Simulated scan of single mutants.
Amino acid sequence: MSVNGKYTIVSGDTFYEIAKRFGVDISAIQNVNPSVKPESLQVGQVIDLPGPSGSRGLSHQPPPASTYTINSGDTFDAIAKRLDTDVPHIQSLNPEVAPESLQVGQIINIPSGPPAHHHHHHHIKPARPQPPIEGYTYFSGPTHKFPHPNTWAPYEHLISINERLMLLNSSPTEVFYIKKWIPIIAYESGVDARVILCIIMQESGGNVRNPTTLSPAPDFVKNTGLMQAHNGQEWDESYPEWCVERMIRDGAQGTRFGDGLIQCFHKWDRNWYHACRAYNSGRVNREDLSDGITATGHYVERVANRLIGNQWAGM
């Protein structure tokens, strides 16, 4: 039930379903409810609803600078280094939080600026104002300014909205193979099936015949297949299902020439956004995931939009 910008949780509610019902972004709901855990909604709980500025297609307001949502692998030490502060400063703002028992999705307080004794810190260039794109949300900065994995759309929903795009370039049988092998390889590799699907859509649009590309000099690495994997499997009309399986395995599990998503995940803080950044550019600027280094700047932003189920022209 919604009254004056408030909503009362009913049985079966998720942030995803509420966002669909009111035509707003999941991230906008999360931003106006920084202390609410999306995975622990209770019937009868009252949450805030975003105003017009949170409507789908408009740039969302970032979460308050004084809070941070715990991600997989986070520690106070890692957070302190990322924010150019120190552990005692974070502990002083969170006296009731046990650093050794951090939970994914937990909200903690962080300093609004670096402590006075810090003289050197990284500055993130402010993003240039972007024109609104219907169905698209702009994200930049570190991980906590991107949608939390608990707010990602269900895999079945993501498949349903992306299948029509795959069918523009791949046959129904070829799309069937893609849909068949994503969950199998996700289970075997440990890569979230939604991440695999969204990387496929970002790299090739689900086109099994996606052309091989070469990385710029001096590497000249071949990027192949559905996931543009490092010197991976290329399309062969004679073995369609085998090629689809191999292409997805190459992207998720890596090849003997280069890392896949799971290697990037473990190397870069066990964080899927960091893994996506590393998969695209080989390195990660933790302070600004829109820093493509030598690759595509908006890559992680696009993947994040896909993960929350956004749909926009030209996706």
Rank of each mutant, 00 (worst) to 15 (best):
V10R: 09
Y16F: 13
F22M: 03
G23T: 04
I26W: 05
I26G: 09
N31M: 03
V32M: 03
N33I: 01
N33R: 07
P34D: 04
V36Q: 00
E39N: 09
V43I: 14
V46F: 05
I47L: 00
L49A: 04
S55T: 09
S66M: 05
T69G: 00
T69A: 00
N71C: 06
N71P: 00
G73I: 09
D77M: 09
D77F: 14
K81Q: 14
R82F: 04
Q91Y: 11
S92P: 12
N94D: 08
A98M: 08
G105P: 11
I108D: 13
N109M: 09
N109R: 14
P111E: 12
G113D: 15
P114Q: 13
H117W: 15
H118R: 11
H118S: 10
H118I: 14
H119C: 02
A127Q: 15
G135H: 03
G135M: 01
Y138I: 15
G141Q: 01
P142S: 06
K145T: 07
H148V: 03
W152C: 00
W152D: 00
A153N: 00
E156Y: 12
H157R: 13
S160W: 03
M166F: 06
L168S: 06
S171C: 07
P183N: 08
I184N: 13
E188A: 07
V195S: 09
V195I: 15
L197Q: 04
I200Q: 01
S204I: 02
S204F: 11
G205M: 01
V208P: 00
N210Y: 10
N210R: 13
P211L: 09
S215H: 02
A217V: 02
F220T: 10
H230K: 12
W235M: 02
W235S: 06
Y239S: 13
Y239L: 12
E245P: 03
D250L: 11
G251N: 11
G251Q: 15
A252S: 14
Q253T: 12
R256K: 11
R256I: 15
G260K: 15
L261M: 08
I262E: 10
H274W: 09
A275P: 14
C276V: 09
C276T: 11
Y279P: 00
Y279Q: 03
Y279T: 07
R286F: 06
E287P: 08
N305V: 11
I308Q: 06
M315S: 11
M315I: 07
